[in-house]
Structures are given as structure tokens and as C-alpha cells.
Nucleic acid binder design. Structure first.
Lengths: 193, 193, 193, 193
DNA sequence: GATGAATGAGAGTTCATTCAT
DNA sequence: CATGAATGAACTCTCATTCAT
């Protein structure tokens, strides 16, 4: 009777620990990027010992990918790629691509770092998929291969400007964001032809 | 007359070593980026002892900036930003911006890494200046502040796509390059309005 | 009840290691002084890896100050500065100042080295405090400012002669010690006037 | 004919170089003590290359001893130990011991450092000899063995207080100096009995 | 599970000294 | 004589990971 409950408790506790550790990892990765981050620092930030960290994650990389998974989920929640876009103006489509990116990156302090980190391929893939599908909805006649290429480029462009947007604030932030959207609109208009 | 040459002799050996060390640094930086690079590895690659390296460079950072200086020079040689562009078609202007970048990055294996490395602000600045001046020649009526912003964004875009272009080859490389140029053309056309 | 003991276990090992490391540091500092000492040598002497040393001490300096703390404690145990001295003959007072110093320095091989080491201000301060208070008890009418000066000078004198006393042995040691006491007695007699 | 002159020229130049190097060594030793000093720093301060330094001095130690020799000479010039002292008051004798010490140490920035440096035994010996002879003149009936001991102790006392005197200034300097003289007067009075 | 002690290779850098020029 | 390039062992300190408790 008790035995059937305990394992759940344990699992629950374990997942709480993992979340705790990922929170800590987020903080540390955000501060100095993936490779500058220290597993000891992560453990300390989480308030546990290094040994405990390695009970849940086999190595540093796995923490990055786990954190990236979190972001993939947040992305899925924030940005529904299958939303109707064929009727809406292009500017709105672009807003729907850019604004959630800025929002998520703003909310999740290590988003940028993970986006760049080698072990987080999945995150880049997920973002690219989203964009790809959005483009597909907007320009259905586009060849899928070409579309993938366009999506990749769009993601790279967003990824390149995003850090500066996040670092800026006020007018500078708005200007940069507007410029980013201008680039994407011009590009996607060209692609649509 | 002879006296002015003699002192050079000694410096000549030193300058050869510096070049040698920078070559080695280029190789090592290219392989794993700035922070993963090891001064010992650089020295070993150059075939000298660690102490020799430090006779010419006070620290690891200084090697990166020195290497970046090389690239700035190569850039200046490859891409004359004051060349007439007001009469030529936009596509040609873009070719003149993108092709030398690809060329230099292809020739100098650590260009990318240095472009991203923190200590190499100058390189990013130089590239941005070049683009800024090119835009100025093409769209003279553009407000300088706005122009700087556009140049910054253009450089970020090129910097974001460049690694993939360099990593690719054959058809993929050509496609990516074409796509990059398309982005820039669309953007600059929009800016020109 | 048991819970309060358990956590100690782990710290116990650590504190044993710290003591071990300080013992090793004592040996190494004694051999060549603070700055000539090597953290690797200390670790090796303690039979541990360099990393272990840095788990307990953030740097070389901290080992010196920790060692000095040990000596401050030993000093406090050996030399009670508030003991009655106003009734006893001056010679006895001086014995009580000098003999514990020689004793401690003899027992703790790095006492001298730490006494001179820059990071061990505390040790010099503690020794000076002791002497200051002893003088205060013996010559209560002395102005505190002047007394501090006298104490400082007394400590410097002891510190200057001590190394030779420790290095000597037999008759030479006794002679030097006697001479040191003579200096102090003459000085303090003069001060008492 | 010319040949007989040249070697002198060379020697003269050589001695100028040596003096130059010793001046530099003085500065560098004064700044951080013997062991912290760097032969490269000395060479640089002298405005020559490291190789040149090693043409005149076989190693770092030899620079210290050569510098100490300078100080021995300065000492001999400043403090004539065979001057009549038997008729003069003790205070004057002590002034003649202490003031030149302070003077020389003030004039020659590395005096202190050399006084403490291991390789400069001679300097300590010379100072001790001077004091020994001064005591001999003042207290001729003292047993030479005992006198040597007293001289040694006197020198140690001066050496212990000197750094603080030099570091201080104004009232503090005067107070310390007075205190030092008080110690020595009390001690020598005691010894004279 | 959790702890924190332990590891050890290796990081960047220094420096007394030597040697080719 | 003078130069400055060259050496290389050694230094302080770090960190991903493991292991005994």
C-alpha cells in the first residue's frame, strides 16, 4: 500500500530536483554561455552538491539539451505554427514569428545561449520547423526544399539580431525590432513572388 | 645606410616568428574557436615553446586581436568600399559585399571564429564600416544613423549565414549564397525606398 | 539526535584533511618561506592532489593565514597576557614574554616564516597585543599610545633575534636568549622610569 | 698604439654598464625585494637586453652581492668606526651608529632589501663589524666574544626597526627613531656595567 | 538519493638563463 | 659587446567527473 505510493513520491521529488537543477543551469548558462558554465556552479546555484547533479544528468551537455527541451515546449505553447495565416497580412505573420521569439528569449534567460550551444540542435530544429510551417501556410506553393532553406535563413537572421534586441531597451530595442521585421518582410515578399 | 638595415635583421626573425605564431593561432582558433584554443597548442603548432609565444604576445587575447588585424588588412585589400557603386546595378553591389566576405573567410580559416570572438571588436567594426560606406555610396540620401543600423543588420545577416556557406560546398553552397544575396537585395531595395 | 551527528562525519574527513594540509603547509613554508612555497609541493607533502588543496583553501595566501590562526591560538593558550604581573619581578615578566615565544616558534616550524609573511598581519597583531597587555599590567601608568609603540618595538626585537635562537642550540642558544632578555629588561626598565 | 688604449676604453665602458645595471637592480630590488625581482625587469630598467646583463653578472644573486658591495663602500665612507668615541657621551655614540644607517638606507633605495637578502651576507657582516668596532672603542674592556654577540644583537635591532622608520615620516618617524635609540642606549648601558 | 571530498590533467603565464646572430 | 629570440620547467589555479560514505 505504502509501496505503491513511495515510488511516485520519489519520482515527484526527483522531478522537482531536476527542475531545480535546470533552473540553476538556466541561470548559469545565461550568465556566461554554455562552455563557460561550470557544473559546480550549477550545483551550488541549485543548492545541492555536485554529486547530486550527476545523479540526474550524466554530464554538462545533457543539462543543456534538457534545458533546450524546456524551451522547445515553451515555443510550442507560445507559437502555434498551424494557425491560419493565409488570410492575414504579411506583417501580422511576421509579428507572429518575431514577437514570440523575443518574448520567449526574454522570459527564459538562457534561451539565446542554448540556441547557440552546440548540444542544442533540437532547439534550433524546433524553431526552424515552426518557421517552416508558418511559411508553408502562407506560401503553400513554395517548393518544400526551398522552403526549408528559406526557413533556415529566416531563423539565422532572427538569431543574429535577437541578442542585440534583448540587450537593448527603449527606442534602440524598438528600432532594432522594426529593422528585423523589415528584413523579414522584404525577404518573404521576394520569396513569395 | 647600412646601419639602418642591420637592426632589422633581428626584428626580421622575430617578425617571422610572429607570423608563424599567428599562422598557428589561426589554425587552432579555426579548429575550436577562441576560448577553446590553448596557448600551449598554438605554441606547439608553431613548433616553439610556450615561452616564445609570450615573447611576442602578452596573452591569448592579443593573439586574437593581432589575427583580427590581419583580417582587417585583408578586408581592406579585397573590398574597396569607396569604389563607385552609384551607377552599378544593386546585384553587383551586393556581389561586391558578399563575395569578398566569402573569399576572405574561405582563405583565412579563423575569420569566422575571430569575427565572433569577444576581443575582436575591431574586425566587426571594420566589416561594418565597409558595408556602411558601400551603402552610403549606393543610397546617399539615407540618414547616417539609420544607415549605421542597416549596416549593422546587414553584417549580422552575413555573419549568420556565412558559417553555413563555408561549411557547405557545391550546390548547397551556391544555393545558400544565392539565398543570402536575395535577402540582402530585398532588404536594401526596401531601405532605398 | 543522530541527525546532528551525521553531517559532522563528512566535515570530519574534511577537517582532518584541512589539518593535514596545514601540517604540510607548515613544513613547506618552514623550509623556504611563504613565497618560495609551492601549492603543488604542499599538496604533495600532504599526499593529496592539487585540486584537493583548493577544495579547502581558495589560494596560497589563505593557507598562510589559516596557519597563522593556528599560531594565534597556540599563543593564546601558552601566554596568558592578563596574568598578574604587577607583583612579580621584571625578569619573570620577561621570561613570560620570551620563553613562550621561543617555545611556540620551536614547536611550530613555520612560526617564524608566518610571522614575516605579508598575509599574516593577524599573527603580528596578536603577538603585539599580548606584549602590549603584558606591559600594561606591569607599567599601568604608561600612556597607551607610547605603550603600543613600545610593544611594537619589543615585538620587532624578539622577531629579529628569534630566528638565530631557533637556529642555534646548546650554549649559543642560551647565550642569545640571555642577550635578548637583557635587551628587553634594559629597555623596559628605561621605559618604566 | 691604438691597441693599448682600446682595452681601457672597453673596461671603462664595461664599468659604466655595470653601474647602469646596478642602478637598475637597485630600483627593481627596492620595489619588491630580491626574490620578487626579475632579471628581465632589471635589464629593461637599465635599457639593455637580458643577454647584456648576463655578460656582466653570472646570475641574479651576483647582482645582489655587487649591489651590497656598493653599500659596504658607502657605509665605510659614512661611518668611520675608528673615530674617537671613548670621550664622547653614549648618546652621541648611538647617534653615530643609527643616523648613518638611516641616512644610507634612505639614500640607497635597496639597502634594506639587500640587508635582508640571503646572498648579501657581507653587507650584514660589514654593518656588524662597524658596530663591533664602535663598541670596542667605547667599551674596550668587553670580551671580544661577548662584544661580537652584542654587536650582532644591536645590528638585528636596528635592522628590525629600520624599515618602519624608513616607511614612516614626520612625527612617527621621529618617534620611532627616538625609541630605537632608547633601546640601544639602555642596552649598551647595561652591557657597559 | 545525497553529500562533499577527491582527482589529475591541463589551463595561461612567468622567468632565469642560453645562444645564434 | 650587444641583441632579443628561445627555452621549458614550474607556477597558481580550475573543473568535469567519480566515489566512499
Amino acid at each position: 500500500m505504502v509501496g505503491t505510493v513511495k515510488p511516485r513520491r520519489r519520482q515527484a521529488r526527483g522531478e522537482r530536483r531536476m527542475a531545480q537543477l535546470l533552473d540553476a543551469a538556466e541561470e548559469v548558462f545565461a550568465a556566461g554561455g554554455f562552455s563557460a558554465a561550470t557544473t559546480n556552479a550549477i550545483a551550488a546555484t541549485a543548492g545541492v552538491s555536485p554529486g547530486t547533479l550527476y545523479q540526474f544528468f550524466p554530464n554538462k551537455e545533457s543539462m543543456a539539451t534538457a534545458l533546450a527541451d524546456r524551451y522547445v515546449a515553451a515555443l510550442a505553447a507560445a507559437h502555434d505554427p498551424d494557425a491560419r495565416v493565409d488570410g492575414v497580412p504579411l506583417d501580422d505573420v511576421i509579428d507572429r514569428m518575431v514577437d514570440p521569439a523575443i518574448g520567449i528569449a526574454g522570459d527564459h534567460r538562457a534561451f539565446e545561449a542554448m540556441f547557440r550551444a552546440h548540444p542544442c540542435r533540437q532547439l534550433r530544429a524546433a524553431v526552424t520547423d515552426n518557421v517552416d510551417r508558418t511559411i508553408a501556410a502562407r506560401v503553400p506553393e513554395l517548393d518544400p526544399g526551398r522552403r526549408r532553406l528559406v526557413a533556415t535563413v529566416v531563423v539565422k537572421i532572427i538569431g543574429a539580431v535577437l541578442p542585440d534586441i534583448l540587450a537593448a531597451s527603449g527606442r534602440a530595442e524598438a528600432e532594432l525590432t522594426a529593422e528585423l521585421k523589415r528584413v523579414l518582410r522584404a525577404y518573404l515578399l521576394d520569396v513569395s513572388d
